[in-house]
């Protein structure tokens, strides 16, 4: 029990961010017309590519002096996958939204 209390206290800012982010997500998504569910999901999907930051940090501080290591390879894959998620996600969303935009001009 004490461990838990200590853990909570040490990470209280983070826990606040998490709880408030949950409400934020609910607030932003509620009342969205179903027309936009797909682009919205796709856009959210691209944002979950924020893991790329973790990949950069990890690969950034990987020791390269010892040549090619398993960590290096996995790190490179993490960054490539993360980028795929980010770039692919945003580009696809943009393409979807293009279709909605076309009709406005008419």
């Amino acid at each position: 029990m004490e461990d838990f209390l200590v853990y909570f206290y040490q990470n209280k800012e983070t826990i606040f961010v998490i709880v408030l982010s949950i409400f934020l997500g609910v607030e932003v998504i509620s009342n969205v017309p179903s027309v936009l569910h797909t682009p919205l999901m796709s856009g959210a999907n691209a944002i979950s590519g924020v893991i790329i930051i973790g990949g950069i940090i990890l690969l950034g501080h990987t020791d390269l002096s010892s040549g090619i290591s398993l960590n290096l390879i996995l790190g490179i894959f993490a960054v490539i996958f993360g980028t795929l998620n980010v770039v692919g996600g945003f580009v696809v969303t943009d393409r979807m939204l293009d279709m909605f935009k076309k009709k406005k001009k008419k």
């Binding site: 998490i18 949950i22 934020l24 609910v26 999901m41 959210a44 979950s48 924020v50 893991i51």
Partner: peptide, 17 residues
């Protein structure tokens, strides 16, 4: 914090959807 907010935000938005 950017990763936490981004991730949880997407998580809760996805959960609501």
């Amino acid at each position: 914090q950017a990763m936490i907010l981004g991730g949880i935000f997407v998580g809760s938005a996805g959960a609501i959807l």
